[in-house]
Amino acid sequence: MTSSLRRFAPLLALALLLVVPFLATDSYTRHLFIIAFIYAIVAANWNLSLGYCGVFNFGHLTFFGVGVYTAAIAAKTFGITPWLAIPLGGITAAGAAFLIAAPVARLKGIYVVLVTFAVSQLAMQLVLSQSQITGGGEGMVRIPFLQLGDYSFIRDFKFGYYYVALGLLVLSTLFLRFVVQSPFGKALLAVRDAQDYSTARGISVSRQRILVLVLSAIFTGIAGGFYAIYLRVASPEVFGFGTMSLVLSMVLLGGVGTLYGPIAAALALTFLTEALAGIQGFEEARFIVVAVVMVLILRLAPGGLVSLLDRLRPSRPAS
């Protein structure tokens, strides 16, 4: 019973999400869902490198930011259609991931954290200093939006954008499912759980890490590209601590090393933080709430909320 429920729960959730725009007709609720879908893609892909592969990657938001600025510059400066600018973000993000991964693959422990983190700070400095290209601290505004013929996706209270975002989330999830269930995905778990043994069995750890970082960057960059086109702004905040802690708390809340956990957590936390932002004087303080939530998860349920649910059930081998 529980196993068949597990199999069909994602499909059930998808069916529910497909009808949401017919129930929630105001553009604000739809906007929250769209933002949650974007964060869900970023969190789930971060989980691939952090949770499945065990790479201490703290620069995942760099890939997102690269996607944001690629799409923004491509669409606004070069006039490329947003339909192409968005996937372009995925390509440049994957390229950036490859450049970062090459040195990171050889490092161990805290040095991986330091280098990946320093990369994100460096990316932010690059954006701030090259203001004639990126708009500097002001960011870029009035980026072209999605259109199909004469139909603008902003119309009908973001009806079109909702389904584009949901479609990207579905594609990203199918992609992650494919990666995790492939022999490569099994090898990832093997290395994470028993590195010496897997190396002895012929798995190249550094090659694996490079591949994982590149794979996890693809949909993260595409999500970044969509984020820029959807919001029509690109600002250096995407590299900041605030965004990073928010997405990290989604990974932790959903459970490190699970496929759907971060997606559920992204939806929950987006609505929670937006609700908090609505309270007077909580615009900044909500990040404090997110940070406290993060510590509490680590303290009370290190496997995420999913692990709490599992604890209630009769024990079964971890999948």
Binding site: F56, I110, F241, F287, I288, A291, V295, P302
Partner: peptide, 22 residues
């Protein structure tokens, strides 16, 4: 512990920064 304390000190960083701003 190494990974977890990176995250908790990151949380501390956010609490201190946003707290100072408030």
């Amino acid at each position: 512990m190494l990974l977890v304390t990176v995250m908790t000190t990151l949380a501390a960083l956010i609490i201190l920064e946003k707290g100072a701003q408030l």
